[in-house]
């Protein structure tokens, strides 16, 4: 348990969470993601939680925070793969995942990221980020 692979594909970082994370693991993953963003200058971050069976208030908050942190580093985040049971539970729990972009699966998520990154407000920033 613990180790989560962080993939760098093109301009995106893809994080398939394949295990149940305990709190320390989740915090470590957040740090690792930010490190990866720093090292690669990725413009998109896609977190896939389709293998995660529950999202409680801790993990939910951590995901929202990670997306906020990534944005401060110039990276847009899309969370994909939330199961219907997870979604129902999150809403019942009262957890608001405000400002977190989501999509059904990786494919839709990548398409959304592409749109967000090439969107009008961000197009100027894009050119600067390409140069290392």
């Amino acid at each position: 348990m613990g180790e989560v692979t962080i993939l760098n594909i093109g301009n995106n970082i893809i994080v398939p969470v394949q295990t149940e994370l305990h709190d320390e693991d989740a915090r470590q993953l957040q740090t690792d993601i930010l490190k990866k963003i720093e090292n690669t200058g990725a413009k998109g971050l896609l977190i896939d939680v389709s293998a995660v069976s529950i999202i409680d208030s801790f993990l939910g908050r951590l995901l929202v925070e990670t997306s906020k942190m990534a944005r401060l580093m110039g990276t847009e985040t899309v969370l994909v793969g939330m199961k219907k049971e997870v979604v129902l539970t999150l809403i019942q729990l009262g957890l608001q995942m405000k400002n977190l972009h989501t999509a059904l699966n990786i494919e839709d998520g990548l398409a959304l990221l592409e749109k967000m990154i090439t969107g009008p407000s961000l197009s100027r920033r894009k050119d600067e980020k390409f140069r290392k």
Binding site: S53, I54, F58, K83, E85, V86, L88, T89
Partner: peptide, 17 residues
């Protein structure tokens, strides 16, 4: 059901934490 499992396991997670 899977939904009941998800709800209760989430509650267990909160209370154990």
């Amino acid at each position: 059901s899977v939904l009941a499992q998800t709800r209760i396991v989430t509650a267990v997670s909160e209370l154990a934490r």
